[in-house]
């Protein structure tokens, strides 16, 4: 099987610091590969190598079957890049930005204008089309940035944190656009800090941290390993007693957080009423209780624990 995006043992150093310490990536054509990780994990560096912007110090990578170092010109014909920081020309209008890219890609004037109009409509930017991009809201700018990266109908699209800093509605808009691209047959590599985003969009997730792959799998596999939800309780007194009850009912070791906050992975919804009943019987009053989805940090800890045991963060 040939992969649309393939990387083996990528290494990139900036001074003493290894931004990437040897990662493997693979995305079959038409799939969405989610690269998940916190700030500084190496996500952007990986995208920049794959998009031919920087050369790796070690390992190799191929995009669309072309080596990113030996045949960057071939790679550039296939890809679209949406940066973490929307890289549109703020002094140009949305339409001018799109026309410019079309012309650079060799389209005639009429064709470039037509493509720009179609993308403006598709991305809901018609009303703002003739305003300078510098006046756009964050969400509009990201949409324009994405539209600009799609002018040449790339078969492989890199999106580096396309929704970081966006409000939930703008995020949902972008998710819809990503899904449409994939439905159109494109391969997408998406980096994100949000577990939920990777969950919503990716066929496969690679979790990276400190330049290394910490875990990989489908969203379902990873969530199962991360513990889907957590039950949290904060007893007013008797923290020890509550901890024992929690352990007994769930069969798991509760995590003890700040100010007596106890939490356990919630694998079965029937567990919480049982816990509350037992606590009430034992006379343990709760100042706080909640069922929470795992944060990236928690998922991260859970996932890194299973793959790189003994590593401390």
């Amino acid at each position: 099987m040939t992969y649309a995006i393939e990387a083996h043992g990528l290494v990139k150093r900036y001074g003493d610091k290894a931004a990437l310490a040897g990662i493997d990536l693979a995305a079959p054509p038409g799939s969405v590969l989610g690269v998940l990780g916190p700030n500084g994990a190496g996500k952007t560096t990986a995208v920049r190598i794959l998009a031919t912007l920087v050369s790796p110090d070690g390992g190799r990578a191929a995009v669309g079957g072309h080596d990113v170092v030996k045949a960057p010109a071939e790679v550039r014909k296939l890809i679209g890049l949406t940066g973490q920081y929307a890289s549109v020309d703020e002094k140009l209008t949305g339409r001018q930005n799109l026309v410019m890219i079309g012309r650079l890609l060799g389209m005639g004037r009429t064709e470039a204008r037509g493509r720009a109009a179609a993308l403006l409509a598709e991305f809901g930017l018609e009303d703002a089309a003739d305003r300078a991009a510098g006046s756009y809201s964050g969400g509009m700018r990201r949409r324009l940035d994405l539209a600009v990266s799609l002018v040449g109908r790339p078969s492989i699209v890199f999106m580096d944190e396309p929704t970081t800093g966006l409000d939930p509605r703008a995020r949902a808009d972008l998710w819809r656009i990503v899904r449409e691209q994939v439905a159109g047959g494109a391969t997408v590599l998406l980096t994100t800090q949000y577990l939920e985003e990777a969950d919503q969009l990716a066929d496969e997730i690679v979790l990276i941290d400190h330049g290394l792959v910490a875990a990989r799998g489908t969203p379902r596999e990873l969530k199962a390993r991360a513990g889907d939800r957590r039950l949290e309780i904060r007893p007013e007194h008797d923290t020890e007693k509550a901890e024992l009850i929690l352990a007994e009912v769930t069969g798991l070791t509760p995590h003890r957080g700040e100010n007596g906050l106890l939490s356990v992975p919630l694998l079965d919804s029937a567990v919480s009423p049982a816990v509350f009943r037992r606590l009430e019987e034992a006379g343990v009053a709760l100042s706080e209780h909640a069922v929470r989805r795992p944060t990236l940090d928690e998922a991260f800890l859970a996932l890194t624990d299973t793959t790189t045991s003994g590593r401390t963060r």
Binding site: A51, T52, L53, K77, I79, Y85, A86, V148
Partner: peptide
């Protein structure tokens, strides 16, 4: 600074353009 050059450099256009 704005990343506009990153976009150009990721495109199949002449380096000098």
């Amino acid at each position: 600074v704005n990343g506009v050059f990153d976009r150009f450099r990721s495109m199949p256009i002449a380096r000098s353009a």
